[in-house]
Amino acid sequence: MKDKELLTLAIESSCDETSVALVAGGRRVLSNIIASQIDVHKAFGGVVPEIASRHHLENINRVTDHALSDAGVTMDDVDFFSVTMGPGLVGALLIGVATAKAYSLATGKPLVGVHHIQGHISANYIEHPDLKPPFMALVVSGGHTSIVRVDDYNSCVSLGQTRDDAVGEAFDKVARVIGLGYPGGPLIDKLAKEGRPDAIPFKRVFLDDGSLDFSFSGIKTGVMNYVNSEKQAGRQVNTADVAASFQEAVLDVIVEKSVQAAIDNNEDKLVVAGGVAANSRLREKLKEACDEKGIGLMIPSPILCTDNAAMIGAAGYYKYMAGEEAGLDLDAYAQMAF
């Protein structure tokens, strides 16, 4: 019989999903319950922090019960707790952090604080059982757009990030401009399939030569200007073309920079994570580019791309194994470097 795998109860509450998971040995997911608040925030056209915080508090203990029963374990079986400590909405994060700390205090079991982006990257350890560092990672979500060199489980270097909007934020804003509603990512992805990606030449923003940073605030203005000038000229705006052209312009930059980063750093694997990794056109384009350059591409299934606690459990496991326990004075952080 093999050694007992360490079992973690992991909590994620950094934005608008309340999630609790039970993960064994860092890679085997026994349960991964996600209570999404998307419907709650739709009426407001975006995530309202105070409402998100209230819902996290409403949900979290029930989500824990659900996760435990789905996994067929009890709190007694848990070896340690993992929790997202940042970055994210502080009011949202603190529900998870306060809860995890109190679980740890009540049971005397250790606690690990996890960086949310590290969590997204670690979703790939669950999906790809043989994946080991080093590799290059692209993290694309509503809150983040980063290229990260993962040297080891607990050691990574951010090589580039957005200087303004995150890519998911740009999708949300453009969706609003063309009247699609919220959340914009999946809606644009869907509509873009009916449009021509080369219909409107939106500017690809690459910034300085060789930079791995991104900027997406300009393209939103570009879309707005285009829509306004079409309307002024009395022409019907083809929203499918706008969606497809906008998406293509953004993804061209993301794909080119992440593949270039892998090549420049001699990494033969590119790992993708974050909510926007569910975008079907991004998956297509990355596949094409990586195949051409002989780079292995790994993307988790959509459920592990969204914010979820299983990924936090995976990341937490490797932190725990490295002895990086948190104290009861663990805090929540809106901003956090690696």
């Binding site: 203990n61 009011g91 306060a98 809860t99 109190a102």
Partner: peptide
């Protein structure tokens, strides 16, 4: 304070749930 209330309530609840 809304945030303060939540810190107290979530801590109390989790102490009860686990303890």
């Amino acid at each position: 304070s809304f945030t303060g209330i939540r810190i107290g309530v979530s801590t109390g609840r989790a102490l009860n749930q686990a303890g």
